[in-house]
């Protein structure tokens, strides 16, 4: 009983670890604008500073009940409210929070504003208000109309962007604009005839199956040794007697021949024994099955 409880506990702990491993660690601060002069406009037609969050997971993420704050001593400053369907961020997508200090305007309006000409620390805490998921300090040197963004969504270095040339400001969209799949392009340019991919792929396929092959060669050796030891123990054969009598292994032909001989011996019906045996069969009487009750007493002529 105790053993079962222990195993169940371990399984539960394992599940809990697995669940936490797939939690909100994929939520990233992705881009921030402190002073919004001519950039995105909110639902009320106004411009405010904004904070962009990015779901770097390849699965949707629910962010209600996480906390967004600009004060490390007050991690629970703005709780993202429950009950809004828009707080479920699709895989690899973005969401913008307006730093306008007016949370009454909706889920995506924070209860603080970002301060120009000073460092702005921004943190995102998990639902427990203790686990810091991501944080960034936006430097005071960020000029009005510029944003502070990761070079690549969710992972890249932070850099200042001024919306000039390819230095895009990208509220609620990818920080890096891709028109094509980089991997495909790379193979197209550097491996025109496919030889490199073929070489790499065949090496990988061979090594995967070679490892499996070596592993099972070892396992089969160990298994054979165990099987032999068990067989010897079952027949009471010691190591010394084995050296004298035992063969290495039974070949398939030998086993088949023994099997056939046994079958012939026990099951063959070529010659019957020709002995007739008459045994008396006793059947216990029951009025329910008596023939007398099933017959007419006066048969019709």
């Amino acid at each position: 009983m105790k053993k079962n409880i222990f195993i169940t506990l371990i399984a539960l702990i394992g599940c809990a670890v697995a669940v936490s491993a797939q939690g909100r660690s994929g939520l990233k601060l992705n881009e921030v604008m402190v002073v919004n002069e001519s950039n995105a406009i909110d639902d009320f037609g106004e411009r405010h500073g904004w904070i962009e969050l990015f779901n770097s997971n390849h699965a949707p993420m629910e962010i209600s009940s996480v906390f967004i704050t600009d004060d490390p001593s007050n991690p629970k400053k703005y709780p993202v409210p429950l009950g809004d369907v828009n707080t479920r961020i699709p895989k690899r997508q973005h969401v913008i929070f307006w730093a306008d200090g007016r949370p009454s305007r909706g889920t995506f309006h924070l209860n603080f504003v970002l301060k120009p000409n000073q460092d702005n620390w921004i943190g995102v805490y998990d639902a427990n208000g203790i686990t810091l998921i991501d944080s960034i300090t936006v430097p005071a040197s960020l000029e009005p109309g510029m944003s502070y963004a990761r070079s690549t969504d969710g992972v890249g270095k932070w850099e200042m962007r001024n919306d000039v040339g390819e230095n895009y400001i990208t509220p609620s969209s990818n920080n890096i604009i891709r028109a094509q799949n980089d991997k495909i392009q790379m193979f197209k340019e550097r491996d025109e005839n496919g030889f490199a991919l073929t070489l790499m792929a065949m090496c990988i396929v061979f090594s995967a199956l070679l490892i499996l092959c070596l592993c099972f060669l070892a396992i089969s050796k160990i298994s054979e040794r165990f099987a032999r030891a068990n067989k010897m123990a079952a027949h009471g054969v010691t190591a010394e007697t084995k050296a004298k009598h035992a063969t290495d292994s039974d070949s398939g032909e030998v086993i088949a021949a023994i099997g056939l001989a046994l079958r012939d011996h026990f099951e063959a019906h070529d010659q019957e024994s020709t002995v007739l045996t008459i045994n008396k069969v006793r059947r216990s009487y029951s009025p329910w099955s008596s023939k007398i009750y099933g017959m007419r007493h006066n048969p019709r002529s």
Partner: peptide
């Protein structure tokens, strides 16, 4: 287990066709 390597070798058909397709 060494028969596994035959299964690996036959996959060359995939990558040979990949080169022809390119």
């Amino acid at each position: 287990p060494k028969l596994m390597l035959i299964g690996a070798a036959a996959q060359f058909g995939i990558f040979g066709a990949y080169m022809v397709a390119l």
